[in-house]
Nucleic acid binder design. Structure first.
Length: 251
DNA sequence: ATACCATGAACAG
DNA sequence: TGTTCCTGGTATC
């Protein structure tokens, strides 16, 4: 989302934008925005906030299936698949499909969403101690805490599995049994990996830490065997999501 | 043509 | 805890 926000700043901010909803489910809102100007775009965790003139804000969360597609051409191709919103300027076209959230809100709505989110490793204003202190006082497994957007914003199933594998931490260990230094290390590792992710436009984990690995290499996520030691990876379900861990490397 | 699956999260009970 | 909602790529019939 931080990458999308940066892209939207380049392509939309300061321009007059035509807004439509080819799929129809954002038609009323699109009509309200159509012909207006985008003032700023910001992201916090998996949420993106697109601020318009007249105090309007478009709030987007991609969920599992959502995606943005951008075309930097004067003559865009017709919408591909179900397009919830199309933003069109004289030089570029941005399409949004499949979002979990796409809604019109205002500054108060943005504040309400952000109040529910933990610190985001990609934000300059993030307070890592809020994450660290929360983990160190929680009896919940670290594998759950990392997926809890109130504890830390932006981490999903891939980063959860990979960062715990790189740190050598068992996902089922309660947060309060970890050292402060280990939890600070998790935060720092997430900052590093997620920044690379924004730059590259994809999740890079094992491929970042070990340059001999291909960029798309994973240590445990969706793997049958551990990328480091070769042992069989434990695949279990935690809170309805697949959880991967190496029983050897993450004791 | 149909089934299934996935990097997410809200909601009912 | 189970159900529901997004979409589209791939596998299967």
């Amino acid at each position: 989302m931080h990458r999308a926000a940066a892209q939207q700043r380049r392509v939309l901010v300061g321009r007059t934008v035509a807004v439509t909803s080819p799929q129809g489910r954002f038609a009323d809102e699109a009509a309200l925005l159509d012909g207006g100007t985008v003032v700023a775009v910001d992201a916090h965790g998996k949420h993106l906030f697109q601020s318009w003139d007249h105090e309007l804000v478009v709030h987007v969360h991609l969920g599992l299936f959502g995606r943005y597609r951008v075309q930097r051409t004067v003559a865009p191709t017709p919408p591909r698949g179900q397009v919830r919103v199309r933003w069109q300027t004289d030089g570029a076209t941005l399409d949004l499909s499949g979002p979990t959230i796409c809604a019109l809100t205002d500054a108060a709505g943005v504040a309400a969403v952000r109040a529910r989110l933990g610190p985001d490793p990609l934000r300059a204003d993030a307070d890592p101690d809020r994450f660290v202190d929360r983990v160190l006082t929680s009896g919940a497994p670290i594998g759950r805490l990392l997926m809890d957007q109130r504890v830390i914003a932006g981490v999903g199933n891939v980063y959860r599995a990979e960062v715990l594998h790189l740190a050598g931490i068992d996902p089922m260990r309660a947060g309060r049994t970890l050292d402060r230094a280990s939890v600070e290390g998790l935060w720092d590792l997430l900052v590093e990996l997620m920044r690379v992710g924004v730059r590259r436009g994809r999740i890079v984990t094992a491929g970042h830490v070990d340059p001999t690995q291909p960029a798309n290499a994973r240590g445990v996520y969706h793997r049958r065997t551990c990328g480091r030691c070769g042992r069989a990876v434990d695949r279990t379900v935690l809170d309805g999501r697949d959880l991967y861990a190496c029983p050897n490397c993450q004791r």
